[in-house]
């Protein structure tokens, strides 16, 4: 067993652990931080698979932007900070665990049977090629996605903007 594989398995283990923490912790901030760890470990996995550019995008976009957004969201919605037993919906816990467990077993069954013996050969960096493909063959979807992002930006601002009428009502 090579050192590379050991590192990979270890990463996967940590990934699972932090992901489980995201959904099980009773602390909102801890959940967010765990998501940061999950994403960072995913980026590590991507690096191990020699997809450096995607790993960087993941770090930049997710950890840099999305998580910050989440933290803002948590704070603005005044979700109870610190340990809070009320975070989970206890009635759903059993059913949720059952369903997600079943899905996990299904997926595992299919994936393990379907990809028996398949291996990954990691090559060197491919960032330059990726950039060329992205801006030549996939330039049209790329532009469309940027439009979607713009639309989401405007939509987010429109939705989250403080309504003047509501503000007045609050003041009264």
């Amino acid at each position: 067993m090579e050192i590379y594989e050991v590192v990979t398995y270890f990463t996967l283990l940590l990934l699972l652990f932090s992901a489980a923490r995201v959904v099980t912790t009773s602390n909102v901030i801890h959940a967010a931080i765990s998501l940061v760890f999950t994403l960072a470990l995913t980026a590590t996995l991507f690096l191990l698979l020699s997809t450096q550019f995607v790993a960087l995008v993941l770090v930049l976009v997710y950890i840099g932007a999305v998580i910050v957004l989440f933290l803002f969201g948590v704070m603005i919605t005044r979700a109870p900070l610190g340990k809070n037993a009320e975070l989970d919906n206890d009635k759903n816990k059993l059913i949720g665990a059952t369903i997600s467990g079943a899905i996990f077993l299904l997926f595992s069954y299919i994936l393990i049977n379907g990809f028996d013996g398949e291996i990954v050969i990691t090559s060197g960096s491919s960032t330059e090629l990726l950039g060329e493909i992205l801006l030549s063959r996939f330039v049209f979807p790329f532009e469309i996605v940027s439009f979607v992002l713009l639309a989401a930006l405007i939509g987010g601002i429109t939705l989250a903007r403080k309504d003047e009428a509501l503000v007045d009502e609050d003041q009264i």
């Binding site: 919906n89 759903n92 059913i95 949720g96 369903i99 079943a102 899905i103 299904l106 069954y109 299919i110």
Partner: peptide, 20 residues
């Protein structure tokens, strides 16, 4: 919403099991 989703996913699982 969560209950709806639960029913939906339960259905998905059941149908998948049936098919598999």
């Amino acid at each position: 919403t969560q209950q709806y989703l639960m029913l939906f996913l339960g259905g998905v699982v059941t149908i998948s099991l049936l098919i598999l």
